[in-house]
Amino acid sequence: MTNDNSLMAGDEGMVVLSKLDSLINWNRKSSIWYLLFGLACCGIELMQTGGPRTDLDRFGGIPRATPRQADLMIVAGTLTYKMALRAKLLYDQMPEPRYVISMGACATCGGLFQLAYSVCKGVDKIIPVDVYVPGCPPRPEALTEGFMRIQDKMMRERWAAKLSGRVLG
């Protein structure tokens, strides 16, 4: 456990003391299952990020083929209006809490194709985005960085307070 407040004592077995939030968040950030959602050339770079060289698996990132098992949606590529409605549907099918990475220029603002009649000018027009990763396409290192920013965001969640109703979640 990475929390400084934790205390290990162990004559008879191990005892770890920590805040409940840190425990929950640490668990969550260590197994981010992301939805396979490659839309264009960024999808290729997303696959590369999942491959052995940059290896998203070491963060517990595993691609899921269904939104119902996914914590994170990586919108990788050019989003057309036709696809935008589907993206919204997929986002709605993801269980909360859910996070979205907008990968690359196209997903962020329409990118190179923003003057095209068929291209949605940014995925944030339809769903809330947590992290924008710039690039065209972003290198795997950049996407990994975005993934780690999602982890940071997860570590700042306050579930215990939210569950007790003291903080509006």
Partner: peptide, 8 residues
Amino acid sequence: YHGIGTTR
């Protein structure tokens, strides 16, 4: 288009 603005 379906409430999605076409400008940015």
